[in-house]
Simulated scan of single mutants.
Amino acid sequence: MKITPILALAASATIALTLATANSDTPAPAAGKVHGRIVFDGKVEAPKPLKIKADQAKGCCADGVAVDAVNRSLLIGADKGIANVVITMSVAGAKLEVPKEPIVLDQQKCHFEPHVSIIPVGATLRFANSDAVSHNVHTYSIKNDPLNKTVAAKGKIDMKVAKAEPITIGCDIHPWMKSYAFVTDDTHWSLSDASGRFSIDGVPPGEYKLSIWHETLGKAKATVTVKADFSSEAVEVKMGKKKKRRRR
């Protein structure tokens, strides 16, 4: 069978296109993402170190090693990015995914690790203790049942969260210890890194409202649009300390 030059050219183009598609390392995205930065609005001041008494810190670390006194309540990077900011949003029709296994909040060298956790409603929060000393886990909340129990060295205790709210966590034995479990019923979320950046994957096209929370700076909101081609512009949200009103 003889193939005319035009048909041969078309056949070659089809084969080349097929091979290029098959060998492509960049598949078409199935969904978009929401991304951006949380930045501090105001004058950056050095954080005050934690007050740690030597007698209370006995056994927290190896002999001769001091407990880390860095105050994590407001960590601001060199470019004013804020760490540990919670960003949540909901996607219509998406299901809240609750892990079957407990989400672990450890106690290491008399600090909670991580400092901020995002916990979906219905999940189990496990307070582990990797230290050689006991801790007393004390939670402060409005909607969830409080917990106030001692966790022995190398021990653990579980707590199920049922309502959306930020929960403050402390230790009555070591008063400088503090952590936050942000319980959410939103379907998608992210926690900002040391540079203030965050990213939320698996977002279909549409307009979304972002709910933003920080332990010291409070709440903020933002709106973002994921386009039909799954692209979106980076969001920048500024957060600052609220000015105290002067009494007249």
Score class of each variant (00 low, 15 high):
K238G: 11
E207W: 03
A228C: 05
L50D: 01
V137P: 09
K51A: 10
K2W: 10
Q108N: 14
N84H: 12
K160C: 00
A28C: 02
G196M: 09
I118E: 04
S190V: 01
K53G: 12
K221Y: 05
K154T: 01
S211M: 09
L9C: 12
A194W: 08
N129F: 01
L96F: 00
F127K: 04
I212W: 07
A92F: 06
S117Q: 08
D145P: 04
T124M: 03
A28V: 09
R126N: 04
A222I: 04
P29D: 04
T18R: 08
Q107Y: 12
I87Y: 01
P114W: 07
E101Q: 05
P99K: 00
R247E: 11
P146L: 02
N23V: 14
K95D: 00
P175S: 12
H214S: 01
I173A: 13
A20M: 13
V70S: 15
L17R: 06
K163R: 15
K178R: 12
T18F: 15
T88K: 09
F40D: 02
L217C: 02
I103H: 00
D25A: 13
V85F: 06
I167Y: 10
H214W: 02
V44M: 11
A69S: 08
F198H: 12
P146A: 06
D158T: 09
D158M: 05
T124V: 14
R248A: 12
D68A: 14
K241I: 10
K154I: 00
S199M: 13
G218Y: 03
D229S: 05
A13F: 03
V44T: 11
K219R: 13
G202E: 09
T26P: 03
A13E: 03
N129C: 02
N23R: 13
M159Q: 14
A78P: 04
L17D: 03
V137M: 03
F127L: 05
A153D: 01
L191A: 04
N144H: 08
I103D: 00
D79Y: 13
K51Q: 11
A10M: 09
R248D: 14
E45Q: 08
T216C: 15
A94C: 02
L9Y: 12
A46D: 08
D185N: 14
C171T: 10
M177Y: 04
G32S: 03
R248E: 11
T14K: 08
F40A: 00
A30F: 02
H214M: 01
K51D: 13
A181R: 08
V133I: 07
R245F: 11
K109D: 12
D172V: 15
P204M: 08
W189R: 14
Y180F: 11
D25T: 11
F182E: 14
M1K: 06
K2L: 14
L9R: 11
D193F: 13
D172W: 04
A222H: 15
W176L: 15
S73R: 15
A194N: 08
M159R: 07
G77K: 12
I76H: 07
P146V: 11
K53S: 13
A13H: 01
K100R: 06
K209G: 05
L191Y: 02
I76W: 02
A31G: 02
H188L: 11
L75T: 14
A30R: 05
A54H: 08
W213Q: 02
I142H: 12
D229V: 06
P47Y: 07
K154G: 00
V86T: 03
H111Y: 06
